[in-house]
């Protein structure tokens, strides 16, 4: 089964998840810290005129 890019097999084996242990309290904490810093970033990225922007996002019908 041909793959077009060299090394794709090893990429896949690396990237497709191996079975993971059940989350521990420690990993849950790390997760929360990550989410917190992400939410900080979102505050700086979010379009400032959210209400107007969302209202103005009008599409025509598609498939």
């Amino acid at each position: 089964m041909s793959q077009q890019y060299s090394g794709s097999r090893s990429e896949r084996e690396e990237d497709v998840p191996a079975p993971e242990p059940a989350p521990t309290a420690g990993s849950a904490q790390a997760h929360t810290a990550d989410l917190d810093s992400l939410l900080d970033e979102i505050d700086s990225v979010l379009e400032t005129n959210a209400e107007e922007f969302v209202k103005g996002f009008v599409q025509k019908g598609g498939q």
Binding site: I42, V45, L46, E47, A50, F53, V54, K55, F57
Partner: peptide, 17 residues
């Protein structure tokens, strides 16, 4: 509206947005 904005912006193709 900020939640709606996030929903929309999740799919914004611009890397900085």
């Amino acid at each position: 509206p900020r939640i709606g904005m996030m929903d929309l912006q999740y799919a914004d193709l611009r890397p900085d947005k």
